[in-house]
Design a protein around this nucleic acid. Structure first.
Length: 219
DNA sequence: AACAAGATTAACT
DNA sequence: GTTAATCTTGTTA
């Protein structure tokens, strides 16, 4: 068992950067599940925004009617989805919301995992007072459009690497939410026919995530 | 060139 | 429960 204490009673958070190979699995549904409970870190000018991923959806590329890359649609918008796994795919939805995806699988396979909600943990003091930040931080990261606004993610992050330690990345802090993960069909993709019924959405309630994080003595 | 639809959200009634 | 906001994209002509 690793000792994460810093010798000063205060728990130190284990920041284990995920290896690049993590993103190269072709099991995008398994990856979407595995990303639940991982930390999403965003570097700002003067601080780090640390949150835990609480909801994801898998988009399985060219064979998935719900995916932007369905039926080999390789266009200016979807090109980044064909990149080697480990970069962001950001697009504008309904003309106003930026949605954050994590591209997975080796180059040429346009898999992606949509981040649908996060639980903010630290580094959000600057947005607490804003409408976006809201009084209730637990709720402020719920919804794919809200979390990007909270984190300040826009089209500039399209194609941004998660493996260079620069602006945004994922870490493993040892949290295991497996027993709390609910699996459902995906949201807002009724146009996808039979694929709309696939069990590709993974979610853990924010209140449970909050409880488990406190129980583990993290943050 | 025109047009419909969209991996959503907030503010209504 | 319903609807406006808002604009890029993919499709059709």
């Amino acid at each position: 068992m690793m000792d994460f204490s810093d010798g000063n009673q205060k728990p130190m958070n284990p920041h284990i950067i995920i290896p690049d190979e993590f993103y190269l699995s072709e099991d995008v549904v398994g990856l979407a599940r595995d990303m639940i409970g991982k930390l999403l870190i965003k570097r700002n000018e003067n601080d780090l925004m640390v949150s835990v991923i609480t909801e994801t959806e898998a988009y399985a590329g060219e064979t998935d009617r719900a995916s932007h890359a369905w039926n080999r649609r390789r266009t200016a918008r979807t090109e980044v989805m064909y990149s080697n796994g480990g970069v962001c795919y950001v697009y504008l939805c309904y003309g106003m919301h930026h949605l954050l995806n994590i591209v997975t699988a080796p180059e040429g396979i346009p898999h992606a995992v949509l981040i649908r909600s996060i639980l903010p943990l630290s580094g959000f003091d600057s947005v607490k007072k804003t409408k976006t930040g809201a009084k209730n931080l637990i709720k402020s990261g719920i919804g794919p459009g809200r979390l990007t606004r909270l984190l300040g993610i826009d089209m500039k992050y399209n194609g941004q690497s998660l493996c260079d330690g620069e602006k945004i990345w994922i870490e493993d802090c040892g949290l295991n939410f497996k027993e709390f993960i609910a699996v459902t069909k995906r949201i807002g993709i009724d146009y996808a026919g039979a694929d709309a019924e696939l069990p590709y959405r993974f979610v853990v309630e924010s209140e449970i995530a909050d409880r488990e994080i406190k129980k583990a003595g993290l943050f």
